[in-house]
Design a protein around this nucleic acid. Structure first.
Lengths: 354, 354
DNA sequence: CTGAAAGCGCTAACAA
DNA sequence: TTGTTAGCGCTTTCAG
């Protein structure tokens, strides 16, 4: 395909009988250029619809004005909302956003990160994959000085800015809510144990049990290493719970995908008249359309994206290397609907939020 | 922020006492370079982890190996799935994908397109916004020779490759299904009348009515110009339907967002014991969790993304300007669940697909 | 106030 | 087989 011709600074110079440097300076309003010349250049540039070539600029300035994003899956309410937050900041600050998906695979994550780095991104926003144990692909870039901000699924192994929801407290509230409702045997279906969010949520769950003198039982915790991407994994976890002797009366699910898959399985079980209290981490917008309406722990995804992006751009644009790092923790929101309520306890008609 | 130092071809040359051109040629395995030198260079490059600078390459080759994508909203099942399809092809072919959202606004669409074009994308994949009437921002680029492929929401005004679902037939099947179920007054809540998908779906709806000798009544068709992005718009449409004298007994919704908002409103109405048959275009994965389980017209979003990307890359890489254009139409899939079934007609337990 | 020239990293004539 | 040079579009010393 023939590339379509573009107007360059040289063309303007030729047309106006000026050197490229004069045109360049005029275009950027340099004080050394006479008003006359400026006006001439500006008007002509406008007329022929001149646009500076960002590639050339990048080569010169050694930065691309774009930031890379790595998430596990776009088609996940949390991440699509976070991306909206990222974009809202990035575009206003003149940055492009390049989004990639790791599909919960360590290998794809590493490939994407490499790919982005070689595309000369100015900085990286990343939420780790559930498979990821080895962080060397990130450490290397971090040591070379690439600004990185972790969001949602963070790590202790790299010292930089981080942003998450308050997963521990969110889990605590959710679990305590189930306890208040009268559930005694609360199972926890969660994601890969490698993830920070998994650890934090488990912690909150444990603390709620402890506070209410319910003994913690490891048999009630089930890990899904693929974060619910593989439905069978979740089904297996649930089946083993309900066919074993522990038979929980409630479930607390961690993560968007796990939550919906669980609901699907529960629906089948409920057809057999087993009532199970349910709540889960999810950012779905249609939780109230579910059967039963879903009690959900909602994360401030949009804000997380925004904060992470602000931090990243601040790092990118900082004159001196940033050495003081911060981990921001944002509040979650428990939206109470019927799925978590004991049926004898009556129905609620409106979503309640604590 | 200090940019982090990268290894260049020059560094290799210096270290090995070779000119940059020799290194360059060796790296790309040129036949003119001796095996010895090649080996030397390759090994050294590997050792110091050399990566070519894609920005410099872009400047030289006058292409960026990236394609731009404009959709109305990432957080829409159809689009996030389509993007997965786009990525799956693009990455394999060595292209980056830059995603932008227009939020159904003509202005943001134009800004994004400009932005992408000025970032030297090699081609553009776009699904028009519901507001968009004026296509001059696209026409201009198209005339300049930028390869463009429309998907989903297409237009007649620009001659190029296009990919959509078979919206007309999908709408026909959905409407006919409601008719088979015994519904007589089927309302159609749809998106902006400017969109191709709106026109096609309306057409299919009309044809189904006609085939079954049900008179078309324009009063039963309600347009939501923001495609459901503004919930009030949809609520107003439904309220006017149910408070007017036409009182439909079923609803056929066009579009992901409209479908879920409709369901929310219907849920309230059903609390008042009004049974309404319902079906809608949506690519949600949790339609079976809804109350009632949702009869949905599903589009092959992933495949649409794939096909569009293949077409685009073919245009980009074609030696001569492409003049023969194609419009690919992919089949939709009607997944029948309870929401569209007459309650007296008994229940279905399994999703059925036609 | 304006121009000439160098350079960002890389490739490709053209020389040697 | 290898080196020299010019150039992609732009900014920025350094000279006028």
């Amino acid at each position: 395909m023939m590339r379509f011709e573009t107007v360059t600074i040289k063309d303007i110079g030729k047309a106006l009988n000026l050197s490229t440097s004069t045109v360049s300076r005029a275009l950027r309003g340099s004080y050394e250029i006479s008003n006359e010349t400026k006006k001439l250049v500006l008007e002509y540039a406008e007329k022929i619809n001149y646009r500076p070539n960002p590639i050339a600029l990048s080569l010169k300035e050694r930065r691309s004005h774009s930031i890379g994003v790595v998430v596990s899956e776009i088609a996940n309410n949390f991440f699509s909302q976070a991306i909206n937050g990222i974009e809202s900041i990035a575009y206003n600050r003149g940055y492009h956003v390049i989004i990639t998906q790791a599909h919960e695979s360590q290998e794809r994550e590493a490939v994407n990160v490499q790919h982005l780095a070689s595309r000369s991104i100015d900085g990286l926003l990343i939420s780790l994959s559930s498979e990821t144990i080895d962080l060397s692909h990130l450490k290397e870039l971090h040591e070379k000085g690439l600004p990185i901000v972790f969001f949602d699924r963070i790590t202790d192994e790299i010292e930089t800015h981080k942003v998450t929801a308050d997963n521990k407290l969110g889990a605590f509230h959710a679990t305590e809510h189930l306890i208040f409702e009268g559930y005694k045997k609360i199972a926890h279906i969660t994601s890969s144990p490698y993830l920070s969010i998994t650890r934090d949520r488990l912690e909150g769950y444990k603390e709620a049990l402890e506070k209410h003198n319910i003994p913690f039982n490891i048999g009630l915790v089930k890990y899904c290493n693929h974060g619910g991407m593989i439905a069978e994994e979740v089904e297996k976890a649930l089946t083993s719970l309900f066919t074993g002797k522990l038979k929980p009366d409630a479930i607390f699910a961690a993560g968007d995908r796990i939550t919906t898959v669980c609901l699907g399985v529960l629906k089948k079980i409920k057809a057999k008249k087993v009532e199970i209290g349910f709540t889960g981490f999810t950012n779905t917008n249609v939780g109230d359309l579910f059967d039963p309406p879903l009690t959900a722990i909602r994360q401030p995804a949009f804000e997380i994206g925004q904060v992470a992006t602000e931090m990243l751009i601040q790092m990118i644009e900082s004159k001196r290397p940033v050495t003081k790092f911060e981990t921001r923790v944002l509040e979650t929101n428990l939206v109470i609907r019927e799925s978590s309520l004991k049926k004898e306890g009556g129905k609620v008609n409106n979503a309640t939020s604590v």
